[in-house]
Nucleic acid binder design. Structure first.
Lengths: 209, 209
DNA sequence: GTATGTTTCAAACAGTTGTTTGGAATTGAT
DNA sequence: ATCAATTCCAAACAACTGTTTGAAACATAC
């Protein structure tokens, strides 16, 4: 049992890293199993198929994330509308994100990049899987925004939430590469946490616009 | 010569559409040549390799886009700092984008999705190709922002520009799917042009924050 | 220790991929 | 009409893909 767990999680570790780096189609099972130091057939034995492995990678991330996010939302849902400032709402999203990074190195960047790739899969099966299984927290988030900013129409909120998601996925997912450029150009290095901090006023201002 | 051009451009048409839909690795040359109704070998004959075909698809888009954008930037570069409001700068980016759509259906969405995919290619060769060949317009854009908003530090501008890019690529690239959701949820349909118009106040507020 | 169920492993499977090849068809110039 | 160059095309290539198989190794319970 303990040997099995180590095989499964070694596969998941290697897979999530490689998927984030290269994408799903560009990562072969042989590359994954080689890096994980397990036999090729063990992916199909433990996960059934490559597609299921991809979903398992997402599940491990999203379970951690949505659990923490859900807690944050619960406390917010007991506040008065006036207390629901955009900054506070953004922090409810950012706190669970930051705590991902404390578990594994680079987890934020990997997670965001995976989300971006899931979103780009226009064939749709993965995006549908994610939204079906974890979309309800996004709905709760939308409701909170509606409550805090009743002057905004519901589709204004819908779109602004997606503008926000785009900023986060794009910059945090690519933050490694962007930070390299930034460092080369301005000789200044920001950690992911700093990039997030820089992002809050930008997003909050846009939300309130 | 005219037959050749029609083959080359038929390949480009089919390729850019399929690449945007499914991604580069997920699109085979056989799928492309079948849709383009040309022989399989003609891709390698006319473009050399699949990799070069991808670059050719980007070149066709980016030449059109950067030419128009460059014109917009030239007129802006002759203005006084006080006149360089964020909204005006954003329009310099949006106008060339909208004019893409007048040439081919769905061009904005396709273009943005391609940019997103190029950006996600972390192996890097495509992103480097794009930034090397067309990055100078982005630099000019940065300079304009610096001029209009001298109180912002240079890396604040750098990052905010990327927040903005993320919003645009994410929402416009996925606008088809998102608009479907939006329509299903609120029974209201926005065109791409409307989504862009909605985006301007959001982004402008963030830039000025 | 034997029997039972679980996990690993090397090997092979059928299918798809990008690319190459050599000859046929087409084109344009003289 | 003749020649040369360009373009097209069917066929084949080797390399790689995800998955399956059947036996070996291992663990667990009696």
């Amino acid at each position: 049992m303990t040997k099995t767990e180590s095989t499964k999680s070694r596969i998941l570790d290697a897979a999530e890293q490689l998927f984030a780096e290269r994408g799903f189609a560009e990562t072969s099972l042989r590359t994954i199993t080689t890096r994980a130091k397990v036999n090729l057939a063990s992916v199909n034995y433990h996960f059934g198929s490559k597609k299921s492995l991809i979903q398992a990678v997402f599940d491990r991330f999203l379970q951690d994330f949505t659990k923490e996010l859900s807690l944050e939302l619960m406390t917010l849902e007991q506040l008065q509308p006036v207390q629901l400032e955009a900054e506070k709402l953004l922090n409810a999203l950012i706190k669970p994100l930051l705590s991902l990074n404390s578990r594994r190195d680079n987890a934020i960047s990997i997670f965001m990049r995976l989300l971006g790739r899931a979103y780009a899969e226009t064939q749709g099966h993965l995006r549908r899987y994610v939204t079906d299984k974890y979309g309800h927290v996004l709905v709760r988030f939308t409701h909170l925004f509606q409550k805090g900013y009743p002057k905004l129409t519901i589709d204004q909120i819908f779109w602004r939430l997606h503008y926000m998601l785009g900023s986060m996925i794009f910059t945090l997912g690519g933050s490694d590469a962007l930070r390299q450029i930034s460092q080369a150009d301005f000789n200044r290095d920001l950690g992911v946490e700093d990039v997030i901090k820089e992002m809050v006023p930008f997003l909050a201002a846009g939300m309130k616009a």
